[in-house]
Structures are given as C-alpha cells and as structure tokens.
Design a protein around this nucleic acid. Structure first.
Length: 490
RNA sequence: GGUCCCUUCGUCUAGCGGUCUAGGACGUCGCCCUUUCACGGCGAAAACACGGGUUCGAUUCCCGUAGGGAUCACCA
C-alpha cells in the first residue's frame, strides 16, 4: 500500500452487506454474447447470495449512445431472462452528482486543476513515444497554484505516486500494480462533464455495489478506480474480472464468429434462450462433469472461484448441440408458437387451427430431428403443404424408380386397413413387402417420397397416422397421377 | 514498446502433490438400433506448451522461455 493512502473510513466491521452486483453496458451497439455472459454471471452471483442484480446504462458518451441500442440491450436481457432488480440507472442523468464528487475531491486536495491543452498533451505523448518512454501524463499541474483565470481546465485525481496497490481479484487472484505506473486521470472534462472513470466509481458507490464482476479488459482500470475510491474514503467493492470470449479461431470475437447481437441468436439462428444461457454458463465456468444445468441449479452452484482465468473460444457447434437438447425438452405447444411465423411465411398463408394442432401432435417426432428452430420449421413444412406437394430431387428419383404400379399396390393395401393407426399401417406395409418378396424399405421409401416429398422424414407410419387417411391417400394418388402423366408425355 | 493477465484432447472443461494407464461434453471416426433421417446406446482416436527448480513424489507449487490476451484518451 502507498504511504499516502488515506486511512480506511471505518475500522469497525460493517454489518454483512447485502450483495449487490450490476451489469453496466454502454449503449453504443447491441447486447453481444460476451456482454450477455457478463450479465449472466452477475445475475447468478447476486441470486446465489440472495442479493440484487442491477442494470446501469453507461450513456455518458452522448455522441455514441443511441436509443435503438438501449432498446436492443433491454430486449436481449429480457429474452435471456436476465431480470434485473429495481429501476434501470441511466448514467448521463447523474452527471451533476459526478461533478459534485469531482469538486469535493478538489476541495479536499485529492484532485487538482490541470490547464494542459489537448495539443500540449499530444505533444507530450509524442515525445514519450519517440523516447520509448511509457506514455502517461507527467503531473505538470499537480502542484501548481498559478491558475490562469480564463482558461479551460480539467480536474485530475491526485493519485498516490509511491508504493503499489494489490487487488485480490476473485477470479484472477492477487494482482499488484505499482502506483508509479498510473498517472493522474481526468475526472471532469474541460466542458464540465464527467469521465467514465469518475462515473463508474460514483455510480457503483451510490448504488451500493459490493461486487464488480466485469470483463478483464477492465482489470487495469480497477487500480485507478481504487485510487479514486480511497480518496473519497468509500467502501471498496470486491472485484472479479472474467476473461473475454474469443472467436473460434482464437482471435478476439468479431462479427465473423459470434459477436452478434443476442437478437441474432434468436431471430437468425433460431436458438432457445435457455440453451444460450446454458452454453454461456459453461463457457468459462464448470461444475464437475455437469453440462446441462438449469437456472435454479446454476444459482445454487455458481461461484466466482469456478470461473476460468483464460479466454474461452466460442463454439457454434456446441451451442447448437445444447440447443438441440433444450429443443427436445421444450414444450410442444411452445415450439409450435415459435415456428408458426416462419412457417406461415414459407407457406405464403397463415396457419389454421387444424394445422397448428397437427404440428403440435407431430412435434415429439419433429423436434428430435432439429437442433434449432429454423430447421424445425423447414422440417415441419411438409405436413402443412397443400396438395399436390412439391417433390425434392431425391424424392422424385425414388418415385420414378418405384413406378406407379407399386405405389398403386401400396395405396390399395393401406386403404384396406381396418384402422388408420401407425401399428396397423406398418403391419399392412410389411405384409405387402413380404408378398412381393422385397424389403420393407422398397415399399416404404417410395411411399415416404409420395407422402413427404423428401427421402428423409420422421417415421413414415407415424406421418401417415398423423396426416390422416384422406390426406395420405390423396398424396399417394397425386404421386401416381404424376408418374402416369410423365409416362404419357415421354 | 511499458504494465497486467492467461496456457490440460481440435473446442469447452474436470483435476485443487500421490486416487492420472489424465475424467466428461461438443466435434470426428466405427458399431448397434432401424423403413429414411434423426434421437438413443456402445466403442475408438485425441491433451497436461517448453526448460529449470522445490519435493520421497509434480498436471497440480515456484522461476524462466515461448505463445496468446488485455490495457496504456478531456472513449466507455
């Protein structure tokens, strides 16, 4: 600790404070996957300790902050169920309070006016760069009192110059930085607005934040923020700096591999929020061999000590796999509702109640064959198509090589079944295959093509049962008619 | 470049001095199930970055090297 550190405010231990964490995104873009994970960890930690999870929008940069970005962040948080406590705090609205603290520091002698111009500082940096010296403010106004009257000035923190500061980071462990490495940061700009460094510290303090959990790109900032906290004599929060997420190639996450808004994971990739949450939780944190972890279990198990110290790579394949798991576990009616819009678009018409009911009844089979909602929707389309349904190339080939005669025989056999159920239909089909001394597949594949328009589908007899007698027979008739017409024109 | 952080299968991770012939998951490959595709089941290949220490004993502790990352604004 530096010799010039002020004494801790209270020697007596304060009562065990209620844990308060916060997620503080700046609304310059959308809520990306890394931010979502940071928010998740903050939420889980707070809930684990029965505390509060707050949300603060860091919109002090007026030029870069936008309304749509704020809306997108709130939307993304809501979708993922990252429910925050209390009101959202907008940092810009607190600028007066921030300035007040800066002036308080100035009055107490913990801060000073600096009249160096931006050009002057740029020249300083240039000289340092040329001399291969570390680039930092040299404190030229730190002890001066000959202030010009009409010149603009900034307020800088008079930070300790000797000694060092150690942060016992809850993820990174003890990290020590010499005070000589830190320069006197700007608290209040010459236009009177607060800098980020000032704003975070004041807001965290005023919001009662006890644990600052954020990306490790802020680790270096923590030391300067701590100097400010100590100058004010405030209670120091605990810090936890979690590693950033990297792209699949190990480079910093970019548009190419995953650094999209979470809305893209929902709207474009068709992922379920609980799957994204589970994947994010496991990215950088583990609990033994557990992979599928519910929110309730996560709250019970989550701890900062379990967070890895190295950056993790984003792996879309695994996310899809986790999504597939949650898709299969999801409620059928919910899935129907989720894919209905996309299906209506593909079909060019809205879904009828009968159509929705058919989807719901088929869902247990459909969802086993999809790992995201897009595939689920496209894989379900054949059920709702209007006759005659379109054939893909594989299906057309299957029908052509089978021939109309076989289809007709199959149609007659199926039509003769006493009850239109999957077991009964399968029994009939097997009987036909046996009578013709062919494998079941010889009969089933052409039928599948006629019924679904594809070479792959859920179990054929389940589909027949689901579609019903009239629709099924009708589709087979369509295929037969098509084959005969082709032969006639050939 | 200065400072700080990190390093177990391709990827996410378990491991917190002997239980490691290093476990799980995704991916890959093979087999089974089977009317197709999936789901599911079984199995295989696949890792402690390197070099020094400390120790009776290092994946586990310490120090280097290499590699990776973060950060050095009147941005956040």
């Amino acid at each position: 600790m530096g010799a010039s550190q002020p004494a801790p405010p209270q020697a007596a231990a304060p009562p065990p404070a209620r844990v308060v964490t916060r997620f503080a995104p700046s609304p310059t873009g959308f809520l990306h996957i890394g931010g979502a994970r940071t928010a998740l960890f903050n939420l889980l930690f707070a809930r684990h300790h029965g505390g509060d999870f707050r949300l603060r929008i860091e919109d002090t940069d007026r030029a870069r902050s936008t309304e749509p970005a704020i809306a997108a962040i709130l939307d993304g948080m809501t979708w993922l169920g990252l429910d925050w406590d209390g009101e959202v705090v907008y940092q810009f609205a607190r600028a007066a309070r921030h300035a007040e603290v800066a002036h308080q520091l100035l009055a107490a002698g913990h801060a000073y006016r600096c009249y160096a111009t931006p050009q002057e500082l740029e020249a300083l940096r240039e000289a340092q760069r040329a001399a291969k010296q570390p680039m930092r403010y040299d404190g030229r106004w730190r002890d001066r009192t000959d202030f010009p009257n009409d010149q603009p000035y900034v307020i800088r923190l008079k930070a300790p110059r000797d000694g060092s500061v150690t942060i016992d980071d809850l993820v990174q462990g003890p990290v020590t930085v010499a005070n000589a490495e830190l320069d006197d940061m700007v608290l209040l700009r010459s236009d009177g607005t607060p800098t980020y460094m000032l704003a975070v510290v004041v807001d965290d303090h005023d919001m009662g934040v006890t644990h600052v959990i954020r990306g490790d790109d802020h680790l270096n900032n923590a030391f300067r923020q701590l100097a400010l906290i100590r100058a004010m004599g405030w209670q120091e929060p605990a810090y936890a700096h979690i590693p950033l997420i990297h792209g699949s190639d190990g480079a910093k996450l970019s548009k190419r591999h995953g650094a999209l808004g979470v809305d893209a994971y929902r709207d474009e990739m068709g992922l379920l929020p609980e799957a994204v949450e589970n994947y994010l939780l496991r990215l950088g944190w583990g609990h033994g061999d557990d992979e599928i972890i519910s929110r309730a279990q996560a709250i019970q198990w989550f701890d900062l000590a379990g967070v890895g110290r190295g950056p993790a790579r984003f792996d879309m394949k695994k996310l899809e796999s986790v999504n597939g798991h949650y898709l299969r576990a999801a409620d059928d009616a919910r899935l129907v509702a989720l894919i209905a819009p996309a299906m209506a678009t593909a079909l060019g018409r809205g879904l009828t109640d009968a159509g929705r009911d058919l989807l719901r009844r088929s869902m247990s089979e459909l969802k086993k064959r999809a790992s995201n909602l897009n595939d689920l929707a496209s894989g379900s389309l054949f059920l709702l198509r209007s006759r005659p349904i379109p054939m893909d190339d594989a299906a057309a080939k299957l029908l052509a090589s089978a021939g109309a005669a076989l289809l007709q025989a199959a149609r007659d056999t199926l039509a003769g079944t006493s009850e239109w159920t999957a077991p009964a239909l399968e029994h009939e089909a097997r009987g036909l295959a046996e009578a013709r001394a062919v494998k079941l597949g010889q009969v089933a594949q052409p039928l599948r093509a006629a019924i679904t328009g594809a070479a792959q589908s859920p179990g054929l007899f389940d589909v027949l049962a689901l579609l019903g007698r009239d629709e099924s027979l009708g589709r087979i008739d369509d295929a037969i008619a098509h084959l005969q017409q082709e032969r006639a024109t050939a």
